[in-house]
């Protein structure tokens, strides 16, 4: 329950962080809120030799209205997302999903950038960002690039981030009247999701014009329920139950002490139905 010793560097700017990453190579890890990294270091499941603390980069903590989308600084904490008026009004899914992460003390430390970069499929925010078609701005020694959420998550705890790259910003579209929902299923409020489902549903003339569904903990990365999304496109709200029956298609959930793969698939279907129904009611 005590981490192995490491060297500690404080990044004074994003460029400084990139420089430090270049200097220390793959043994270095970025430290944001630390609520994914420090627990595994304490269990000695991770032992980076250098931690580069981004905690002083207060200029990476913001939510900005940029016309058709909102820009969120990577060091914005989950509690800040939860409370942010602009997010609540323009993209309630992010504010609400953030409020379900961990517990209040965790959310006082944990950041959106940390959640995304850690790339944990059981984490709530990534699947919500997936359902939102968010884009991520990353910067490295080769400059800045933008990655779509759908391209960002590669495998179990693996993202497209290069060893010297820093995630700096998350952009989410304004929902402009689209319905949304996040259904987190867990046994205790403080736990990771057994399964979570994020839904963004657009309506026109009483039917569903499009639906995007993000799945938490249904595989090695956060996933989209593409079959259900196709079935929902153009569907009548009365057929949601049928359309979401395919919400687990293409997923590969694990079996563990919380749930069997079969049960997770079942939950994905039930929660997708409930999420889409709730989104339609918003």
């Amino acid at each position: 329950m005590i981490p192995l010793a490491f060297d500690y560097e404080v990044a004074e700017s994003v460029d400084h962080a990139i420089e430090l990453l270049g200097q220390h190579g793959e043994e270095a890890k970025l430290l944001a809120g630390g609520h994914s990294l420090l627990p595994i270091m304490k269990l000695r499941l991770a032992a980076p030799t250098v931690l580069i603390d981004l905690g002083r980069l207060s200029d990476l903590s913001y939510v900005r209205d940029e016309g058709d989308h909102l820009a969120i600084g990577a060091m914005t904490r989950q509690c800040d997302l939860e409370r942010d008026q602009t997010l609540q009004e323009q993209c309630g899914l992010v504010a609400y999903t953030a409020s379900l992460v961990g517990d209040p003390s965790v959310r006082h430390r944990g950041t959106i950038g940390g959640s995304v970069s850690h790339g944990d499929a059981a984490s709530d925010l990534p699947s919500a960002l997936l359902a939102l078609d968010a884009t991520f701005t990353v910067r490295g020694s080769n400059g800045e690039r933008t990655v779509a959420a759908g391209d960002f998550f590669q495998d179990y705890l693996q993202t497209v981030l290069e060893p010297d790259e820093v995630l700096t910003e998350i952009r989410v579209p304004k929902l402009n009247g689209a319905g949304w929902s996040y259904k987190k299923f867990n046994r205790r409020a403080q736990d990771w999701a057994v399964v979570g489902v994020a839904a963004v549903v657009e309506r026109s003339n009483g039917s569903i014009s499009s639906a995007r569904i993000g799945l938490t903990n249904m595989g090695s990365t956060p996933l989209r329920a593409t079959a259900a999304e196709s079935a929902l496109a153009g569907a009548d709200p009365s057929s949601v139950a049928e359309a979401t029956g395919s919400a687990d298609e293409g997923t590969s959930p694990s079996s563990d002490i919380a749930a069997s793969a079969e049960y997770r698939r079942h939950l994905a279907r039930v929660l997708s139905r409930r999420a889409v129904e709730e989104a339609l009611s918003r």
Binding site: G34, D53, S105
Partner: peptide
Amino acid sequence: CTVHLDGESVKSCTVLAVQ
């Protein structure tokens, strides 16, 4: 281990002293 850091609750077992 909950304490307040700048007035907000945090779990001091998951914060480094240097942070």
